[in-house]
Design a protein around this nucleic acid. Sequence first.
DNA 1: CGTGTTTGACCGGCGC
DNA 2: GCGCCGGTCAAACACG
Length: 300
Amino acid sequence: MFMGQNLRGSMIVMEWMTEGNNTSYHTSSSRCESKIKIRPADSNRRKDVAKAVSELDPHQRTISTVFLCTNFKWFENEPAGQYNTESLSTASVTIQSDSKVDVPDTHSTSDDTTTQDDGYRWRKYGQKQVKGCKYPRSYYRCTFPHCGRRKYVEKTDEGHEQVSYKGPEHSHTIQKSARFNEDRTNRQNVLTGQDLQSQREDGKPSLELNTTAIEGIITRPRLIIQTSVEIDDGHNWQPLRMSVKSFGLYQRDFFTCAHQGCVAKKIVEMREEVQKISYEGDHTHPLFDKKRKRESEVAL
DNA sequence: CGTGTTTGACCGGCGC
DNA sequence: GCGCCGGTCAAACACG
């Protein structure tokens, strides 16, 4: 399972809000956006979740794992179950899809139905009808001074957006684009919503997403997940043998991405039955397919 | 007025 | 050399 700040890859995140007697479910992923209206709030939420899942786009219905977040603990394959409705009203369900995306290999790619805002600011400098493609290809360049990063966006015949990047890596951290900011505000970013913040202030911190402002430039958020289940984030992690240490009452394990040149890091803290996983840095390569023991076509 | 998009022209690489 | 094609440029335009 991977939960990036913009929910890329095959992740589907579903959240719900209770307004009066109505509960609305909102699913979002890099592949689709859909809203599902469900019955009054006093109904059985297990059925609601099951119904919502069944109403997902067929493409997304190849669900392998359902993660339920309630009171900010993650439970696997337990939609709504034994939890009272109050605790669920601010929770999120995260569904991991088995679906894979075929993406032509470029330096790095992703697949989208809506253009993913990756946090960088891009300026469109051209559009071209490419032979054999139904839709034109759009050309973007990073607006940061002297950054040579480029982005090419084109729609596949199926209507999915395909993004590829070219040129040197960004020579800077993420710029806080207006749209990025707007999206984050509107969607509350699922993982960084007001609910999470208020819960944190209630003294139940267990899922955090930090952003750090440096001279007006926003770095990528660090994702911290607290979970009682084993989570496969789709990457091949290599333990840092010398870094496994005990910090007081809990153990902290350090991992680096096994992919050569990738700087992504993972820190796992074990506290009793619950592990706290922190992710830092971005992967510069596709997901690691453990079944095939190689990297898959799906990029993050 | 600043910022971003559109779009036709232009350029360079490649195959024949 | 020529034509094709993908990528880039830049003037015109749109928008807040």
